Amino acid sequence: MKKPAISYKRHRFPQQIIAHAVWLYFRFPLSLRLAEELLLERGIVVSYETIRRWGLKFGPAYAKQLRRRRPSLQDVWHLDEVVISIAGRKHWLWRAVDQDGYVLDEIVQSRRDTKAVKRLLIRLLKKTGMPPRRIVTDKLRSYGAARRDIMPTVEHRSHKGLNNRAENSHLPLRKRERTMQGFRSAGGLQRFISIFSALRNLFVTPRHNRSALATHIHRIRAIAHWKAVTGAVA
């Protein structure tokens, strides 16, 4: 098996512990102190501040190496925005998910207008390399205006009831927001969601097969892939 291109040099703890701590914090709605307590239960004495530093250093590298879903011309993009208060100011987290609930991209912006939607669509096209079959949004007019400029040939359906998939995708982050008692900066939120969503995508179960056995097998494979990426294989 190919070794991950992540260096753990000059770190006192082995890579298995570092990867496990980062996985605990970003995969589950845990505070840093709760992650510290769970590690202590396993006999690992590490401070919550150390876990925070591990997340900042290794989280982006892990997220970069996690596998990404291959785009398809049959994809349906569900777009939505959610307001998040940061230091007393309103910001909007714009998110795009596909028909299976896989997070395609998300971006924190201080605007809620056509310019903000255009920026999201341009990022999505660069990342996927192809337009979708259809986009689904709520009734915000900025979506239609941006779609006409960026991808005029793509079908657009605008209806609040059709966009539950995108709206539901905000729920895991909302739980984390409460656990963390909010975010301190827009940049900090952007860095967090890039890692948080990469891990969530790895473990999300495909919609076409959600039997108990299929879910179990999917999670086992996801954990194996995570260990291979981080070098945490025992």
Rank of each mutant, 00 (worst) to 15 (best):
G129K: 12
R176A: 13
R89K: 11
R123P: 07
K160N: 12
E155L: 13
D149C: 12
V108D: 05
R178E: 04
L189D: 03
K139V: 11
L93H: 10
F196K: 12
V108E: 08
Q190D: 10
N168W: 05
R165V: 05
R134M: 05
H156I: 11
V108H: 06
R157Y: 13
K118Q: 04
S169I: 14
L173M: 00
E155H: 12
H91E: 05
Y143S: 07
A145H: 13
M151L: 02
G188D: 08
S169E: 03
K139T: 13
W92H: 10
R157V: 01
T128S: 15
E106C: 15
F192C: 00
P131N: 08
K160V: 15
R165I: 07
H156K: 03
S158P: 00
Q109R: 10
A166H: 04
R134D: 15
R147C: 13
F183N: 00
Y143E: 06
G182L: 12
L124Y: 00
V103A: 09
H156V: 10
D98I: 09
Y143W: 04
P152Y: 00
V154Q: 01
R134E: 15
L173G: 04
A96W: 07
R133H: 10
W92Q: 06
A146G: 02
L120E: 07
G187V: 11
I195W: 04
V103T: 13
L162H: 02
D138W: 03
D98L: 07
Y143P: 09
K160L: 13
E106S: 14
A166L: 07
T114G: 09
L125G: 09
A186P: 13
K90I: 01
G144T: 04
P132R: 01
V97E: 10
R95I: 11
E106Y: 13
R174M: 03
K127Y: 08
V117M: 01
S110Q: 14
T128I: 11
G187Q: 15
A166N: 06
Q181H: 11
L189E: 03
G101M: 11
S194M: 15
F192I: 04
K126V: 12
L162S: 03
L93F: 01
A198K: 01
A145D: 08
L140K: 06
Q190E: 15
G161M: 15
G188P: 15
L125K: 09
A116K: 07
L124S: 04
D98R: 00
K115N: 08
K118M: 13
Y102V: 10
H170W: 11
T128N: 14
M151H: 12
T137H: 10
F183C: 00
V97H: 10
L199M: 02
H159N: 14
G88F: 13
A198W: 04
T153C: 03
A116L: 05
Q190W: 03
R174S: 05
